[in-house]
């Protein structure tokens, strides 16, 4: 990836993990893994949420422009657990968005245990090619 791209990103501070995440997050909430991609037209979030029902995922952007993800893990298995690396619980993640994001156009889909959130940038901030005339 070119250096120039990185520079541009640092200046804008596109998406920050909300500092409040630790403070606000409810007790016993796990933090699911998140990947964020910076694309020309949008930000793409990919969140690992295996085994969660679609109706148990709650996604919102609050008045402070913070994207909040909450999910509840309700799956249960019968039998005695003889080896356990995961347990049931809630998931919580929060990210501060910048003004570039078009809040009305945010879309999300859940597939194969991964939640994909598309946060399109507003039309006026999308990169456009401009011809400059030389007088």
């Amino acid at each position: 990836m070119s250096n120039c791209n990185v520079l541009q990103l640092n200046e804008k501070e596109p998406v920050l993990q909300a500092t409040a995440e630790e403070l606000v997050s409810p007790q016993n909430a796990y933090r699911p893994d998140v990947d964020i991609y910076y694309l020309p037209e949008e930000y793409l979030f990919q969140v690992d949420l295996p085994g969660i029902k679609e109706e148990d995922i709650q996604l919102e952007i609050d008045e402070k422009n913070t994207l909040i993800l909450k999910a509840r893990n309700t799956q249960e298995f019968s039998g005695e657990a003889v080896f356990k690396q995961t347990s049931m619980g809630n998931y919580y993640r929060a990210f501060s968005l910048n003004d570039e994001v078009d809040r009305q156009a945010v879309k999300a889909q859940y597939q194969n245990g991964v939640l994909e959130i598309h946060l399109p940038k507003r039309q006026e901030v999308q990169p456009k090619r401009v011809e400059i005339k030389i007088n």
Partner: peptide, 29 residues
């Protein structure tokens, strides 16, 4: 875990008829 990063996470349940291995593999086709 103590061994560092771990994927996939696994639970194993002992049922009367069988052993059930449950692995979290989000995003794996």
């Amino acid at each position: 875990t103590h061994q560092g990063r771990n994927f996939p996470l696994i639970n194993i349940y002992n049922q009367p008829e069988e052993i059930r291995v449950v692995a979290e593999v989000p995003g794996v086709a």
